Amino acid sequence: MTQRSVLALLFDEVQSLDVTGPVEVFAGAAVQAGDPGAYRIRTASLDGAPVRTSSGLTLVPDTALADGPAPHTLLVPGGRGTRNPDPRLTGWLRENAPRAERLVSVCTGALLLAGAGLLDGRRATTHWALSDHLARTYPAVEVDPDPIYVRDGNVATSAGVTAGIDLALALVEEDLGRDTALAVARHLVVFLRRPGNQAQFSAQLAAQTARRTPLREVQQWITEHPEDDLSVQALAGRALLSPRHFARAFHSETGTTPGRYVERVRLEHARRLLEDSADGIEEISRACGYGTPEAMRRAFVKTLGTPPAEYRRRFRAPVQPQPAH
């Protein structure tokens, strides 16, 4: 079996989970594949000295960046240390990162890649809170703030923190197959796998939580009953408000209209059912409030650019019991 070397970059104020999340995925994949050499994982700092993470943990690298050959996969994590990085780090990336066969960033690690000119002319993502900063600071980068990860050629960038695990699982699936990636996901008790184009936020997180109790209860009702009548009139009745007052208050307190919130909840629910259940398209369309498969198809094509059947084909993860290891 092909051995792929993985080098994780370390620096002061790195986000520890940006490093350990993907590393655990790659290490677990080697175990699940029955080949301890499937991935050869090493960590490196500028001078080989230990680094202190943003949470206060100390990580001891295997080597200095100047030592050793170029890796197959270079993992560039994020963290507070990416805001004002050591110029030597940016310089090393500019000179050496192009030699890696695969360049991967997690969270604000994209800022390091962009600072080294490695994202110029490429589509990329990062943590939602820094997307605008990345776009303003590096206008040559095509920043997409929504997906949990983006792949552009041999460069892959991911969103905040845990999205690095999703990206690592996708890479393992590409390298070693779906069964191995699925086994790793089950062992880590995470989903296999959130597709890269899935939004960083769920509908509930993307919208603000309303201050007033009746509006918060309506938000919860929408989430729990996507198949119900969720018209403004019906929702206003639940909140004991007039439709006009309800629509104005909902937008004011959540930052979105009732209609858009309902659309996002229904789409999110339909995606989960397509990925995780064996229900038919017609059954899912009814369960999510679309009424007909055609209505659901239009919603998917409009938002995701793909019909439900194709979405299921690409992203459905078969559910099979597997013992813990």
Score class of each variant (00 low, 15 high):
291 G>W: 08
204 Q>V: 05
288 C>V: 14
117 G>C: 11
102 R>M: 13
9 L>D: 09
184 V>N: 01
77 P>R: 06
94 R>A: 15
212 R>I: 07
167 L>S: 02
95 E>R: 10
269 H>E: 07
43 T>K: 03
141 V>N: 13
52 R>K: 03
206 A>N: 14
4 R>D: 08
229 D>I: 10
116 A>D: 05
221 W>R: 14
273 L>M: 14
153 G>A: 10
270 A>L: 04
64 A>F: 05
265 V>Q: 00
134 L>G: 06
238 R>C: 05
21 G>Q: 02
239 A>E: 04
322 Q>S: 09
275 E>Y: 06
133 H>I: 14
134 L>V: 11
165 I>Q: 01
222 I>A: 05
323 P>K: 09
47 D>L: 11
174 E>M: 04
212 R>K: 06
47 D>G: 03
165 I>M: 01
240 L>N: 12
144 D>G: 08
69 P>E: 02
42 R>T: 15
287 A>E: 09
225 H>I: 05
55 S>E: 07
107 C>Y: 10
202 S>A: 08
129 A>Y: 13
223 T>W: 10
93 L>N: 09
255 G>A: 09
1 M>F: 01
72 H>S: 09
193 R>I: 06
149 Y>I: 06
278 A>M: 03
61 P>M: 07
68 G>C: 02
291 G>N: 02
294 E>D: 14
214 P>S: 07
55 S>C: 02
226 P>W: 05
152 D>W: 07
275 E>G: 03
172 V>P: 00
299 A>K: 05
157 T>S: 02
325 H>D: 14
